[in-house]
């Protein structure tokens, strides 16, 4: 009874076991479920890759320095977003707004670079159902996974735009900046996996 008492105290109702607001708990729940969706994409990619006899050689298909630049932009935007959250938490609203705008610039830049990369690949003959380099499934997995990630970046950019405007007008709370930050870091986190699995391995 002595050992179970603290658990009952914490989980018996009327308390906050995670010691976090409902927005944060819901955002983390979303991140877990959305993360599993990406895990499904990457798992499927790994499956197709393993059973394929001829998989396209990444050094032929992709321009790695360009992808490295895309990664640099996304990681940097994550750092500016973390700084925006920190500034908001410490009452520096104007600084937080500037960091949010910087993060938005990173988001737009990343989207532009992804559009350029996609255009380059499509012009080279890559489609959802085929490509000139090897296994036909390559295009399907690449476009669906990076496209789904890109759509998250686009949603993030819209969220950042709304957040920046509201924060500049004093209509947004620190908690909202934190939630936008969690989402944006998740987008960066997913890219870490995509970058490794699609472009390097």
């Amino acid at each position: 009874m002595e050992t179970t008492a603290p658990i009952v105290d914490r989980w018996g109702g009327g308390t906050c076991p995670f010691d976090a607001g409902w927005k944060k708990v819901m955002m983390w729940s979303f991140i877990i479920t959305d993360g599993l969706l990406f895990a499904g994409f990457l798992g499927g990619y790994g499956y197709a890759r393993t059973m394929a006899t001829v998989w396209p050689d990444q050094s032929t298909v992709f321009t790695l320095p360009f992808i490295a630049a895309m990664t640099f932009v996304l990681i940097s935007s994550s750092a500016t977003m973390a700084s925006a959250v920190w500034s908001a938490q410490h009452g520096q609203r104007a600084v937080a707004v500037r960091y949010v705008w910087l993060t938005l610039v990173g988001a737009v830049l990343f989207l532009g670079m992804q559009a350029y990369e996609w255009t380059h690949l499509i012009e080279a003959g890559a489609t959802l159902s085929g490509n000139p380099w090897g296994d036909a499934l390559f295009g399907a997995y690449f476009f669906v996974t990076t496209g789904f990630h890109g759509s998250h970046v686009l949603i993030g950019a819209i969220v950042l735009l709304v957040l920046g405007i509201n924060l500049a007008r004093g209509r947004s709370t620190t908690e909202n900046v934190e939630m936008a930050g969690l989402y944006w870091h998740f987008v960066d986190l997913v890219w870490v996996f995509i970058f490794t699995c699609f472009y390097l391995l």
């Binding site: 994550s78 977003m81 973390a82 969690l182 986190l189 870490v192």
Partner: peptide, 9 residues
Amino acid sequence: ATLIAGTFM
């Protein structure tokens, strides 16, 4: 991934 989740998030 651990750095991003642990520190940034």
